[in-house]
Design a protein around this nucleic acid. Sequence first.
DNA 1: GGCAAGTAAATGTCTGACAATTGGAAAGTG
DNA 2: CACTTTCCAATTGTCAGACATTTACTTGCC
Lengths: 239, 239
Amino acid sequence: MKTDLNENEDLSTQIAEAIRDAIVEGSLIVDQRLPSEAELCEKFDVGRSTVREALKRLAAQNLIRTQRGASGGAFVNRMSFEEAYDQQITTSTLLLSMNRVDFETACEARYALERSCAPLSAQRRTPDQLATMRAEIHRQSQPGLTDEAFCASDVAFHRALVDGAGNPVLSYQLAGAVEAMQPLMNMITYTQRDRDRIVGLHTRLADAAEAQDAEGIEDVLEHLMRYACQLVRERTQKK
Amino acid sequence: MKTDLNENEDLSTQIAEAIRDAIVEGSLIVDQRLPSEAELCEKFDVGRSTVREALKRLAAQNLIRTQRGASGGAFVNRMSFEEAYDQQITTSTLLLSMNRVDFETACEARYALERSCAPLSAQRRTPDQLATMRAEIHRQSQPGLTDEAFCASDVAFHRALVDGAGNPVLSYQLAGAVEAMQPLMNMITYTQRDRDRIVGLHTRLADAAEAQDAEGIEDVLEHLMRYACQLVRERTQKK
DNA sequence: GGCAAGTAAATGTCTGACAATTGGAAAGTG
DNA sequence: CACTTTCCAATTGTCAGACATTTACTTGCC
């Protein structure tokens, strides 16, 4: 680990980078204990608060975790899919909302990405995942559902489709993308007619998945994307 | 912004979460100045070091940036594609390397994702992007190239293909996925024969993109994935 | 052997101090 | 008035020391 700091960046930034590099590069391995704060102070020749700020930076990125007490300290954290997933959602959500990404661009990206799981999902989807899809369709058809609940069910439905690919890496990437677009989708107000149409498309999706028809899945996904874009275009023109 | 802290988590964690929620939820908008550290101390009724650790956590996630001096302070940061991209690469890379994700799973996910840009790239790729692809192919054919340089060129090539879709959101997601798998790909030692084969497939990819042949792109991508998996299978069996 | 108290190590938090940076106000100058 | 220089105040960056809290381990007693 590099211990010489000279640039004009913050000390805590430089220290955090040095430790992060050591983790990424592999010289600090999972569950290994970092030197104690006092030792790091000596090693980098800085005060304790500076070291602590560096460690908090790393903790915020899920790179380390800390334990108090004797034989406590900072440990290299095994990045879990759950943690990575949460991080990606926060990042992607802010990226979209802060950069005025227009709905069509986001929608296009989302469905392009989701489409990538079609062949695998058609091949591998389990009865369990099919059941989840059917259950969400049923929920979406219930009258009196709030728009928010409808969108949440929509996400759950698509997530089941994505998980059908049976590839955790793909699920992680896609679920992040789908979830991040949720705030954008939430802006839409769905009429009963819109919902009926969407439920119909979802049913066709589930049917295609059940029949292991990859092309059918891709086909319906494209319809869904076009319909969502059309809805937004209509609504924004009215205003 | 919530200012009451009672749970048994770290104070700095709770404060960071409160501020993060305010940003995500939109009650703190881009470029808005947060209260000064002293004001935050009063608001949350904690010491300055605690507030600073919370702010460092947020800075590590690119949620805020800080400026020194009069009229300085912490400001809500506009998440840039560049920052989000770097973050995703670090996260995904560690996720893969720390969880013993086997090569085939990662490879399958990567090519499934990349495939999603095929129709758009076929339609929209610019002459510029085609030129980049050809240039990288040329570089890959040069003798005496290190494995590392070969892989780097491989990434640049695929990135040009992805950017061809002309959708920044898609580029962000896909480029992150492609780059994160790079360390796994780097473990392979490529023989001259391997390289010739890959260069051949890349040439077919560029040809298909030039001819705006989406199915051709998807077809070659699948070949590439199978070839990479086969290579890894061979190499690991030998050992 | 088992339980209780004590101890040491480590992180979490607070306080006060000073350094460094920066924008703007005040003062001086032509 | 316009311009420059000087000074000041606000703010973050860093340090040192103290105490609180948590936790594993040791020690001593029964």
